[in-house]
Design a protein around this nucleic acid. Sequence first.
DNA 1: CGCTTATTGAAAATCATTGCCAACAGCTTA
DNA 2: TAAGCTGTTGGCAATGATTTTCAATAAGCG
Lengths: 144, 144
Amino acid sequence: MEPEAGAGGARASRSTRQKRALASVMAESRRFRSAQEIHEALVGRGESIGLTTVYNQLRALAEAGLVDTLRAPDGEILYRKCESNSHHHHVRCRSCGRTVEVKGVAVERWAERVAARAGFVDVDHTVEVVGTCAQCAGRHFASA
Amino acid sequence: MEPEAGAGGARASRSTRQKRALASVMAESRRFRSAQEIHEALVGRGESIGLTTVYNQLRALAEAGLVDTLRAPDGEILYRKCESNSHHHHVRCRSCGRTVEVKGVAVERWAERVAARAGFVDVDHTVEVVGTCAQCAGRHFASA
DNA sequence: CGCTTATTGAAAATCATTGCCAACAGCTTA
DNA sequence: TAAGCTGTTGGCAATGATTTTCAATAAGCG
Ligand SMILES: [Mn+2]
Ligand SMILES: [Mn+2]
Ligand SMILES: [Zn+2]
Ligand SMILES: [Zn+2]
């Protein structure tokens, strides 16, 4: 019989110039950026790629867990390719966006505990820490 | 001299039928709801109030810290009048929205610690726990 | 080289939220 | 109680990120 017989055999993903360019740009930034910013970065680098494609691919990458996402205060979705593939959290600079990944054994346990205490199951959580990074804080002092 | 002399004396807020109705509806729900849902609740209760007004007031209440807000996965802003006025976090049911408030001394410290370790100052954080509440979990078993 | 179909991307559609602003209505003062 | 000042209301248009549409394009395979 044929490989993947039956209904809905997952079709192979194709390698395209656009996907490669996007992956490249995502790999080089340590910041969370919006789809528009990422598209600008691509164009600025001389790549030809549609904004719609950037949106589509970023969504696909996010669903596949290959990029992390978070909501900016204004609601925009920001994307980032993290170094770690396992569960982690972020400490992000509200000024420049620089982000560092951190493990959170303490919060993992805390989340489980308070949820269980409230009678909740199938628990999940969102934890984001935001502040001003050393570099941005220093810049402030310099100009003040 | 006149009261509040000089520029920009904060004018008094007025008590209106709409504000009172909104406050009433917010006080009776223990769930996070969107502006649209809250508007529907008001209309369903026989109140006459515009959707724009609901949006405006909810935003004002949120800025004043009188209601809590959070982003639904799809980006919608959800509002809720919490019992506690001090800093706290939420354990929310992804199915029915029921929410319980919890203190998080452990996470407060954790957030400060990891941020400081990364050289960040003026630290802030977002922590939301989501799961399935006992009632919704039971309902599942019953129908399965 | 052809064929199948995943992918692209311009343009239109969605939709929550905000801006606009003239009509309206609390409150204060005379 | 009446007039005036101004905070408030809310229909409607505008905004803007994200999604949908879908015809043209181009991977990858035999
Ligand atoms: Mn965690
Ligand atoms: Mn906290
Ligand atoms: Zn910074
Ligand atoms: Zn529930």
